[in-house]
Amino acid sequence: MADTLPDTLGPLLRAARQRLTEAGVTDPALDARLIVEHFSGTTRTQAIADPGRKVGLDALAAIDAALERRISGEPVHRILGYREFHGLRLSLSPETLEPRPDTETLVEAVLPFVEATAERQGECRILDLGTGSGAIALALLSAVPGAIATGVDISQDALTTAMRNAGDLGLAGRFKALQSDWFEKVSGRYHVIAANPPYIPSGDIENLQDEVRDFDPRHALDGGVDGLSPYRIIAAEAAAFLDLKGRIAVEIGHTQRNEVTDIFSTAGYGLAGMFRDLGGNDRVLIFEHGF
């Protein structure tokens, strides 16, 4: 309980780490630090320079509750309510996938094309399908002042979160949220169509890590019987919304490169780039129409 936690910063951090360690949490030192800093309003520098700093009772109670949530299996960033992505702090909500470092691969993969298009044409129009927290679109807007983006999601909760993130980052003027089932309500043409679609086969959902299965929204994970349903939709319908020399960039599961390439090839696209994540796994494919 909260009254068992020390009320000074240094000992509090050690006690929090010990509690998570004893519970078998994977990265107890990092999670303890994130929780203590967030709910006490302190920084790592303060913990080092002023370990005797007093922490109030309300903060201790919040830290205690957060530690118990973490021990019960809730991901630390769900508890904090935000996640860092490509240098941006993004708020999360129950209907948004927690953006992960693997998806930064997609941003880096398509960024040179976005920059070149904006420089050549004065703007680069981006369509982010299944935008969730807005991670992909907002990272690209943050990096390229000439870019504008429409974030599409079937969930109004996700779109509300994405718009809040755009506002917090000063990007709301270049970001539009659209509630749509894939391309259903989309109009116009875009230089880049980007997506981190659901790509887990329906039958594999129960085998995912508890933190993913129990806390990420199911509709953001489930890619149909073989995990490829969203790619079929994108490949079949994107041409009507893609600029003549535009690109489609999709994140994939690490075993799906050949299948996804075949789906787009059949629809008339050629593979313009393949990118691996930091773990060396196939992660992002970029396609161009009419290769």
Rank of each mutant, 00 (worst) to 15 (best):
H38F: 13
F39R: 05
S40L: 04
G41T: 03
T42Y: 06
T42N: 08
T42G: 06
T43K: 01
Q46A: 08
A47D: 08
A47T: 10
I48V: 15
I48H: 14
A49L: 08
A49S: 14
R53M: 15
R53Y: 15
R53A: 15
K54W: 15
K54D: 13
V55F: 11
V55I: 11
G56F: 08
L57F: 09
A62S: 07
I63T: 01
I63W: 00
D64W: 02
A65S: 08
A65H: 10
A65P: 11
A66S: 12
A66K: 01
A66T: 12
L67K: 02
E68K: 07
E68Y: 07
E68A: 15
R69P: 06
R69C: 02
R70M: 09
I71C: 03
I71F: 08
I71T: 10
S72Y: 06
S72V: 00
E74S: 04
E74K: 08
P75T: 00
V76H: 02
V76R: 08
H77K: 10
R78L: 06
I79K: 00
L80I: 09
L80E: 05
L80P: 00
Y82F: 14
Y82E: 15
E84A: 03
E84K: 00
F85D: 01
F85C: 05
H86N: 15
H86W: 13
G87V: 05
G87F: 01
L88A: 07
R89K: 10
L90Y: 12
L90V: 11
S91C: 14
L92M: 01
L92T: 00
S93T: 11
S93A: 14
P94F: 09
P94Y: 08
P94K: 12
E95S: 13
E95I: 07
L97C: 00
E98I: 13
R100C: 12
T103G: 03
E104N: 03
E104Y: 01
L106Y: 00
V107Q: 00
V107R: 02
E108Y: 06
E108P: 00
E108Q: 11
A109T: 01
V110C: 01
P112F: 05
P112Q: 04
P112N: 13
V114M: 09
T117Q: 15
T117V: 14
E119I: 10
E119P: 01
R120C: 12
Q121W: 13
G122Y: 07
E123L: 09
E123R: 15
E123Q: 14
C124L: 11
R125W: 13
R125M: 05
R125T: 03
L127C: 09
L127Q: 02
L129N: 04
G130N: 04
G130P: 04
T131H: 02
T131V: 05
A135V: 11
A137S: 05
A137V: 11
L138A: 03
L141T: 08
L141E: 07
L141Q: 03
V144R: 11
V144M: 07
P145T: 10
P145F: 10
G146H: 07
A147F: 04
A149G: 04
A149F: 06
T150L: 05
G151W: 00
G151E: 12
I154A: 15
S155T: 10
S155I: 06
S155G: 05
D157K: 03
A158C: 06
L159N: 10
L159Y: 07
T160V: 14
T160K: 14
T160N: 14
T161L: 12
T161I: 10
